[in-house]
Nucleic acid binder design. Structure first.
Length: 275
DNA sequence: AGCTGGTCCTGATGGC
DNA sequence: TGCCATCAGGACCAGC
């Protein structure tokens, strides 16, 4: 279940089975994701080698010599891998199989907010694809720092929590980690983005990077279960400081954590630690 | 009935 | 008036 850490954990889990391997066939069982999965995906990639499995924001990019398979997990998507002889029969919501020589990589997505699209190289570099073109900087790019955050928020009057969620300044911060990063930085989620000072931007940029990288680190420990199809162990989260802790004492100051709604999404924060 | 991890799209608003 | 960027809300779904 996918914010950036879950997508990165997925990428690391799939990469050994996928990179350098050749796709034998693609089975599209149900094409009705956010946009229709191309029915002829098999014709685009069968017989072709996956050069690399990359990530951009929450998108997983299967790089081929002649194009890129763009995958997004939406709210409920998950990729699983089995040795071919051990793959169970497809279950409900198992929409697509990518069949390799020795393994099957299978996409399950109950809510169908995910996406699987083919972008041929002849249509231009994949970074120019409409879905990727507007994305903000990667949180682990050395160029992402307080100075950038400060510069990019100057004309954003909206609440910092919502600005973080749009992903057009920095990618990968979903609803859970937005609350967690703001707690770590001591910033109130409703604070106007443009009114944050330089120091608070420094703190927030650091907090975003820390929260995401710690979550990736922890998710790494569930990699084995995730890949082996031992159950839906793919999703793991850090022990939250605020997320879903409404009414419980703040771990730092014991003040009860509050839940508010911003843009129809829940936000959690400590009214004492975050101003 | 009302929540839930994402994000695209539309239409409204406001600045130049 | 027009052209922007920004912003709020709706939309897409199944499962609990």
């Amino acid at each position: 279940m996918p914010e950036l850490p879950e997508v990165e954990v997925t990428r690391r889990g799939l990469a050994p089975f996928v990179e350098g391997r050749t796709v034998e066939a693609v089975v599209v069982r149900d094409a009705r994701l956010r946009w229709p999965v191309p029915r002829d995906l098999g014709r685009s990639v069968a017989g072709c080698r996956v050069e690399a499995l990359e990530r951009r924001g929450k998108y997983l990019l299967w790089r081929f010599g002649h194009g890129t398979l763009i995958s997004h997990l939406g709210m409920s998507g998950i990729w699983r891998v089995w040795p071919r002889e051990a793959a169970p029969p497809p279950q409900r919501h198992d929409h697509v199989d990518i069949i390799l020589a020795t393994h099957i990589v299978r996409l399950n997505d109950p809510r169908r907010f995910g996406a699987l699209l083919w972008h041929p190289t002849m249509a231009g570099p994949v970074q120019g694809h409409a879905l990727l073109a507007g994305l903000g900087i990667e949180p682990f790019d050395p160029g992402f720092d307080g100075a950038l955050l400060y510069r990019e928020t100057r004309r954003r009057a909206a609440a910092i929590k919502q600005v973080l969620l749009t992903g057009d300044i920095v990618v990968g911060v979903g609803n859970i980690y937005a609350s967690e990063a703001l707690f770590r930085a001591g910033i109130h989620p409703r604070a106007s983005a443009r009114r944050l000072g330089r120091q608070r931007c420094d703190r927030l940029a650091g907090a975003v990077r820390e929260v995401l990288s710690e979550a990736i680190g922890v998710g790494g420990s569930t990699l084995r279960d995730f890949v082996s199809a031992a159950g839906d162990e793919g999703y793991f989260m850090l022990e939250a400081n605020v997320y879903e802790r409404a009414g419980l004492p703040c771990r730092r100051c014991s003040t009860p954590i509050r839940r508010i709604v911003q843009g129809q999404r829940a936000t959690y924060y400590c009214p004492r630690c975050q101003r």
